[in-house]
Design a protein around this nucleic acid. Structure first.
Lengths: 238, 238
DNA sequence: TTTTTTAACTTGTAAATACAAGTTAAACTT
DNA sequence: AAGTTTAACTTGTATTTACAAGTTAAAAAA
């Protein structure tokens, strides 16, 4: 009778189906097993299955149609929560390179931080990192991240070269992005940004400030992004 | 016994609560009636109430907390699906002005339209309109809209000066935005855009291409937006 | 053979019920 | 008076059951 009953059933099913979609067990455009089949296979009831499927719809993994079934959608090519759509060549994760400009580093929060922090956040300090992302050897965007240093063992010694920051937080620390807010601007590249993104000074670049809310109470991630939109666009579905 | 039973119960409750939040019946930060109270008032069961509340959470009107209740959030200051956060003065709908540059006009779809259209869409032609939005008398963004001319009686004779396009579609035609995709770029303002947005030619502007999916099958809205981000930002929650 | 009808699927809506788990304030103890 | 416990809330999870509504393919009729 003793099962590891911390995780709700609908969450388990969600994770299983999500994994199967991402690993290609279910192909794009094909149908998921019907709700009743999923009930039988996992020995749960339909409302519970439906709860899992609703979450998959919300996260863009499937779409549903009455009388038809649950259709698998193309898993979004997310980089962080950001997607890139390219004009040069198809962008898969294979084509995306990451340069760590500043390895994860524990330090106090900046004096003039544009968001209000909780006391725990402020006391724990933050983990700081800078990365440059390249497509086809060409720099596309540069990001600065501030993450609260709360209960993240061995975080600073991890490598983020290939694995996404968010995928690491998800798989290693069970931290998921629940939502957030962002502010977008088009600005002229200054000296530093221009050098990093291999652009002339004064060229337009996309600037994005975002605050991401996670499933951990009071654990928020703050990012600043400069994006070279000469050859690529920021792509988003919602 | 004969009720107008086209609309599901959970949808009705959603609409009632949404309206009450938007009109200020429930203030920001306050608690909604508990799920059981809502059950009693509307004579429905808790799963149905919860379905309505989940939709409100998804759309950002409330957040829920176990043991506590449903907390009313600040209704997002949406302009279309876009929000603006200002640096000059607070932006309420009072401060936002709209100039119609091109009144809604029925015409064929452009030859080189960057999206694939369904046959019904192509045959019906599209409704075209251009608007300029101003905050504090200063132009902030310019948008071009393509809407399929399918079952929208009297649409071209409506005024969109004060009422939002999306609010009109929602209240007059029961068309709701279900999602969409968008592409963002930072580009240099050309002659026309510079004039419209009252900027020097070559200044960075935000360019956005979006395709919006609605609750009507095959009914999609296409918009192009140029945004002057000198004094304002595009703000988004997700 | 072609068309129509039917039956067997699918998801959508809704009820009634039960218990778990988090929150809060009142009641009780010390 | 101050701290602790309890009870009465709240939302979260889950089962069971039933029918409505959309889709599809097989069966029946023309």
């Amino acid at each position: 009778m003793a099962e590891e009953n911390k995780v709700p059933q609908h969450k388990k099913i969600y994770e299983i189906l999500r994994k199967h979609i991402l690993t290609g067990v279910y192909e794009e455009g094909s149908l998921l097993p019907s709700e009743n089949e999923l009930c039988a296979v996992h020995n749960i009831t339909r409302p519970t299955v439906r709860q899992a499927l609703e979450a998959l719809v919300k996260d863009g993994f499937i779409s549903k149609k009455q009388g038809k079934g649950s259709i698998v959608r193309k898993p979004p090519q997310d980089i962080g929560i950001l997607s890139i759509s390219g004009t040069a060549s198809a962008i898969g994760n294979d084509y995306l390179q990451t340069q760590i400009l500043q390895k994860p580093l524990i330090k106090p929060w900046p004096e003039s931080f544009p968001f209000d922090l909780s006391q725990t956040e402020r006391e724990s300090g933050c983990i700081y990192m800078e990365r440059l992302r390249l497509v086809d050897e060409q720099p596309v965007f540069y990001d600065i991240n501030h993450i609260p240093n709360i209960n993240l063992p061995r975080f600073t010694s991890r490598s983020f070269e290939n694995k996404s920051l968010f995928e690491t937080l998800r798989s290693q620390y069970q931290i998921e992005i629940k939502g957030g807010e962002q502010k977008l601007k088009a600005v002229k590249a200054n000296q530093r940004i221009a050098e990093l993104l291999n652009l002339p000074v004064g060229e337009p670049v996309l600037n994005m400030e975002r605050k991401l809310v996670t499933n951990r109470e009071g654990f928020r991630i703050y990012s600043t992004i400069w994006f070279n939109s000469a050859k690529h666009s920021i792509f988003g579905t919602f």
